[in-house]
Simulated assay, not measured.
Amino acid sequence: MKRYLYFIFIPFLICSCNKEEFEPPFNNQEFYQNHEAANWTRDTAKEHLQGKWELVYIYCCGFGESNNWSAIDDGYFELQFEGDSVKVFRNNALDQTQYWKFDESFETSFDLETEDPISNTFGTMYFSEDYMLFNGSPSDGSDNYFQKVE
């Protein structure tokens, strides 16, 4: 009887392990290489941030049970940088406005510092053309990928 159960469950296991489900939408090695090649400074990074950024992908919890990529619906979460302020939009509605700056603790990395925490902005920022990554995974958070839309 046990043998028959194995034959019933094996096809389900094989089908549930579809390799395409685990392919990331970004090649992170290229993402980091593009960031390094651009030789960002605080001034050039601040200038590049100006405008609206839409959250497009989240990679969650590499060590947890939900180790996966998620595409995000249009308008779900956006950041709009205007000088030293950042507006946060949730579901196309303004949620909050705060002043921001780069954390001065690390000279060569960019970490967003605001008075109150803003979700999806935890970790070091990296840029690759019109994409931005908040890399939260080194401290067991999620990686949040934004695309510049304006």
Rank of each mutant, 00 (worst) to 15 (best):
E21R: 14
E115H: 05
Y6E: 12
S142K: 14
Y32M: 11
L55A: 05
A37E: 14
E115V: 14
Y131R: 12
F12W: 02
G123P: 03
Y59N: 10
G75H: 06
L79V: 10
F81S: 02
N135I: 09
N39L: 07
N135H: 09
C61D: 08
H35Y: 03
L13E: 06
N18D: 10
F102T: 07
F106T: 13
Y57F: 01
N34F: 06
F31I: 12
Y145A: 06
V88M: 01
S119T: 14
D84S: 08
R90I: 06
N92I: 11
M132P: 03
I72M: 03
N28F: 06
Q80G: 04
F127Y: 00
E150A: 07
T121C: 01
H35T: 12
V149H: 04
Q50H: 02
G83K: 04
T124S: 00
P138H: 04
S105R: 14
E23K: 15
W53G: 06
E104D: 00
H35M: 08
P11A: 07
N144T: 10
N18I: 13
K87Y: 01
H35D: 09
G75Y: 01
Y57V: 13
G83N: 05
E113H: 03
S105T: 13
C61V: 07
K52Q: 11
H35N: 13
F12H: 05
F127V: 09
P24M: 05
G83H: 08
F110K: 00
S16V: 13
D116Q: 12
M1F: 02
Y32T: 12
K148W: 03
S85P: 08
T121H: 00
P25K: 14
Q29H: 07
F81G: 05
